[in-house]
């Protein structure tokens, strides 16, 4: 990994820059949800996750499942920036016959554990990975990134109960709580409050953090102060579209792709 990519601030900025280029070229959606989780990815891949870009199938690696599969551009961007595959692959995002699909795809993409895209699947897969690791490589940790909208899915709560009951202490769920789901504000569509209490009620350790504060994310991921065997939920309060003023907190950027002028303006903001 190039040395500067172990700095989450640098990595987050590079991810956002790459995502802008990808969604612009591909005329693709979901930039808002990519930006709300860019800082989380930057901390995870900036040194926390024990993974080997030159040996993606290393048996004892940590596993990351990105359950909000629509944020694929950010996932591919971070993987390329830390060396899983060349940056040039990003040019093929959503292109005919290329591996980087619009929803997170593991086929032919080193570093992606599992393909997602339909919401509500990832936490169950994460439970299986964590249970498998518990028996075969106890040092391996499993992280699942969830969107707020997908917490509407019943399967998430099946998995939440399961992980608490089976004390999957090596499992961490990070909720990218950007407050805007696919067709409206979370509070208007299906209110999640009190969200922390819901996870606590399922016997998870819960912390609420600023999902754009790299030090806070890193501190929350550190192992201190945890209940023995409890899975961990990090409710990351984030801003949809974070980093580009005209994209922030705007439902439209769940769908829109920046045109050439918007791309230039956005890149200028990131560089400012």
């Amino acid at each position: 990994m190039p040395t500067d990519m172990s700095n989450p601030a640098t990595l987050a900025k590079e991810v956002r820059r790459a995502v802008l280029g990808m969604v612009h070229r591909a005329n693709a959606s979901h930039v808002g949800g990519c930006f709300s989780m860019a800082d989380i990815l930057a901390v995870l891949y900036g040194g926390w996750l024990r993974v080997r870009p030159d040996d993606p199938a290393w048996a004892d690696r940590d596993r990351l499942v990105v359950s909000k599969g629509h944020a694929a551009a950010a996932v591919y961007a971070v993987l390329s920036k830390v060396g899983f595959f060349p940056d040039s692959w990003l040019d093929g995002y959503c292109e005919d016959g290329q591996p980087l699909a619009g929803h997170v795809s593991s086929t032919g993409v080193p570093g992606v554990e599992v393909s997602t895209g339909s919401l509500g699947h990832g936490l169950s897969i994460g439970c299986g990975l964590a249970m498998g690791a518990q028996r075969t490589c106890p040092e391996s940790r499993t992280v699942v990134i969830l969107s707020d909208g997908e917490l509407d899915e019943g399967s998430i709560w099946e998995a939440a109960l399961f992980a608490g009951h089976h004390k999957l202490g090596q499992l961490t769920a990070i909720i990218d709580f950007n407050k805007i789901q696919s067709f409206g504000a979370v509070t208007d569509v299906l209110c999640l409050d009190p969200l922390a209490d819901k996870w606590r009620a399922a016997n998870w350790d819960v912390q609420e953090i600023d999902g754009h504060d790299h030090a806070a994310i890193a501190a929350a991921l550190a192992d201190g102060g945890r209940s023995a065997g409890a899975p961990r939920a990090l409710i990351a309060h984030t801003v949809k579209g974070k980093g580009v003023s005209f994209m922030e907190n705007d439902l439209a950027w769940h769908y829109k792709s920046p045109d050439t002028a918007q791309l230039a303006a956005a890149l200028a903001e990131l560089d400012a």
Partner: peptide
Amino acid sequence: DRFVNVGVAEQNMVGIAAGLALSGY
């Protein structure tokens, strides 16, 4: 150690099965 009753939660059961299979089971 290789049997789990996941509860009345079939979607979760299949997701867990996938995760376990990815782990070599």
